[in-house]
Design a protein around this nucleic acid. Sequence first.
DNA 1: CTGAAAGCGCTAACAC
DNA 2: GTGTTAGCGCTTTCAG
Lengths: 344, 344
Amino acid sequence: MKEIAEAAGVSISTVSLVLNGRDEGRVKAPLAALVREKADELGYTVNPLARSLRTCRTRILGFISEEVATTPYAGGIILGAQDAASTYGYMIITVSTDGRASEENEIATLKRYGVDGFFYSKMSNRIASVPASLGDYPVVMVDATDADNQIPSIEPDEFQIAYDATKRLIQADCKRIAYIGCSENMIAQDGRFAGYQAALQDSGFAYDPSLVCNVLNNGPALRAVDKLFDERNPDGFFCFNDARAWYVYECAARRGLTVGKDVSIVGVDNHRVFAETLEPQLTTVELPHYEMGYWAACKLISMIERKPVDSSSWPNTTAPMPPLDSPIPAKIHCALIEKGSVRS
Amino acid sequence: MKEIAEAAGVSISTVSLVLNGRDEGRVKAPLAALVREKADELGYTVNPLARSLRTCRTRILGFISEEVATTPYAGGIILGAQDAASTYGYMIITVSTDGRASEENEIATLKRYGVDGFFYSKMSNRIASVPASLGDYPVVMVDATDADNQIPSIEPDEFQIAYDATKRLIQADCKRIAYIGCSENMIAQDGRFAGYQAALQDSGFAYDPSLVCNVLNNGPALRAVDKLFDERNPDGFFCFNDARAWYVYECAARRGLTVGKDVSIVGVDNHRVFAETLEPQLTTVELPHYEMGYWAACKLISMIERKPVDSSSWPNTTAPMPPLDSPIPAKIHCALIEKGSVRS
DNA sequence: CTGAAAGCGCTAACAC
DNA sequence: GTGTTAGCGCTTTCAG
């Protein structure tokens, strides 16, 4: 920067002004152009550290997650957040925590590094409260929401997911649609079960409790599904998660039935729906993880910079874009998007 | 820091000396103690940004990956790297790239942020070359290696993985052990196939080519496995990956055979082995992802600080710890570790 | 053994 | 319009 000033025959502050785009009406155009030219020649790049020492802005975002780094879906979210951050000139430091103590630790470290704001994510653990230590920082919750709706969040819409998934089975011409759920009290269970019922009802199907099979794991679960097969002979299955879908696959195979041909499955997961149905065939339907991350980052950056995000440069996606500029706190619910074949 | 100096009645430089542990033989012990006490009282934490402005050391590490963020295994690696980094007072900025251009971009950004060193990872793409732009930075390759062995790396040992997995089938008392491989030319294929053969040979089994079944995907693959079942009736299966294991599960189910009871499977993946065998039963065997990340970070930090890593504080793990202090470049090959039940 | 002083690269008042 | 100046918080010679 000093070199540029010398090369252009101006002072350092002029260079600073120009390079920060604050020259409008302060530095004469030709001079500004000269400065820019010299800067280019010398291959100047800002030193963000030095800058942040003055500005108290680092353009670094902290991503706090419990287990985010251990699911493939989380990766997509972080990827999206990183891309968005990168677009706006930010970087993300991701930290994973296990338990309160380490969380506070990581937060403290992140603060020392001067992050401008935080993502706070709890994978598939939807109601959470943001630690007090994040108090006066901009925060966006990802795949989680706070009890009193104070914090902007982006999270899956369990009801809609199950609704769409069930509709898919109906489209595939299934007549006896089973619900293979979880007998543990999962947070997602209520919304999904309601979505299943609503989809049936909206399509003129009567809800039949004998088609509902809430199971735990392993042998007993497998036998319960086996029994359901024998007694009700379902031709469509809504599965709460992968493990439950597995039982259906196994039972079908034992009967010589092929999933995707003789019976249809739509399996949900915390972050994904996979479907093997006759028509449409062999597709996976997922939450727009990448986009969730992208949106979350845009939201966070807009909070930091106190200006609306520019949605024109958003990624090409089939995911419906939620309105991000709604007043804070905004709750964004995600729908599902198509993702290609389930078998690779 | 100024406040501490005032409170303790010393100068700022003394405070700096003490707080950086460079007081030995320079500042009198009681004075140093006083400084430390005041620092505690005032809740002092260093400002890493200001510090790095002087030292040209940020204690930030850059993690460059292509698709690292999209596999669950990658998450484990990053997690381990982060934990190690955190232990030594470092942070990690992870960037994901797609293609050369964006990679160079991310590298440039990371450099501007003053990272002290780089992880360079290419998931399951084992031979790679580190971009020239990383030239004079400390670099550790993760799950990749360079052609001319110039860069320290940590990567899976395909031969050993397949060897161990096959041994497992032998332990489970399998007599006709099939190899379900990949007819595409995968990098991992050679090592794994060799490991399979070596394990058989070492246990006194004759290698039987008719038990080898290299397939592609979908219907044809399924039929090929079906044929193998009919013709050779294997009781143990080494599967190159998940997809291949799936065909075996399907074929077994159709014959009323239960995997883990009637037949045994050991399935490998780029990063994981899962086994369903009679004895030992229902276990997953994985690469020590977490540890890989941990070790990689230790290695990188030791390169940055030009001193051997302290391995006494390493994470509790059943994974065999590789020697990290071998001369650079060190190639670290990972073995497998037990991980609990395959079905949750 | 301790303190004074310079400066890392940049920004932002405030003069000129 | 442009330059001067004073730091941001810390480290590091170099005197004393």
